[in-house]
Amino acid sequence: MNLDNDLKRAMRRESPPAGFAERVMQRVRSGAAPASGAEARRPKRPPLHWWRAAAASVTLAVVLGGYAVHRQREGERAREQVLRAMSIASEKVAYAQQQVRDIGSH
């Protein structure tokens, strides 16, 4: 019987203290989170400054941009080399073929 009474007493409805709802709404409006429980125990992260993020972005952009420019230059140079090599090779082969044709036509 005692246990029943104890439970009823513990579980009985209780009105909040005066001004509770107002305080809760005020906190919601201000955006402040309650510093309690696990959240309060979690180690605080250092704040991420916007300028650090910006500097990292700029550095990344410069590195990627530099690589793209380097690759573009390398590609253009390779293109020129391919054309030059094929130009020399085709010139020599065409000359040899022409000589063979000339001999054949005589």
């Binding site: 390398e74 590609g75 390779a78 293109r79 020129e80 080399q81 391919v82 030059r84 090599a85 020399i88």
Partner: peptide, 16 residues
């Protein structure tokens, strides 16, 4: 002096 291995040929071909 033109030296184009397979990789350089592919790269050059992309720019043709």
């Amino acid at each position: 002096d033109v030296t184009l291995d397979a990789d350089m040929l592919r790269l050059g071909a992309k720019f043709l």
